[in-house]
Amino acid sequence: MSATTITTRINGREQTLRVDNAELLLDLLRDRGLTGAKPSCEMEVCGACTVQLDGLPVSACTTLAVELDGRSVETVEHLDAGGELHPVQQAFLERSALQCGFCTPGMVMTAKALLESNPQPTRDEVTHWLEGSICRCTGYEPIVDAVLTAAQKMAA
């Protein structure tokens, strides 16, 4: 199995890594202790492994690690690096938008990416954006509420 040397930025830190060409981004992150992104469907439909790649939400389960070369990846672990929770995280707590929590990191990253591209989404736009993220516990309504609450917080 061949390997490639890549230069990438993971949660703000530039790194040079030797990665197996078949390695998945999700395994690369989790093998480095960044276990916030979760494996579940492994076919890019559940959203539990969502991270931001150059700001865009991607499923780490179907992204190759070599694709990181020259790019920047952000995971849920980085959101409170400054010591404060991100407004999306705060809103998830306030609106009881989680139960088992397994989908939560992916939901938070997906919501953050939405609010970065569309800071004041409508309820329908939030619903549409979250269509690619499954939550089996909550019934979604609290999650949609949390994203709208976060939008208000970030505008304030």
Partner: peptide, 21 residues
């Protein structure tokens, strides 16, 4: 009272540990 979940902060930050982690 609807007090906040005690596991909430760990879960929104991705630090909650599951067997898989």
């Amino acid at each position: 009272q609807s007090v906040p979940r005690v596991d909430g902060p760990a879960k929104v930050t991705g630090r909650a540990r599951y067997a898989l982690d």
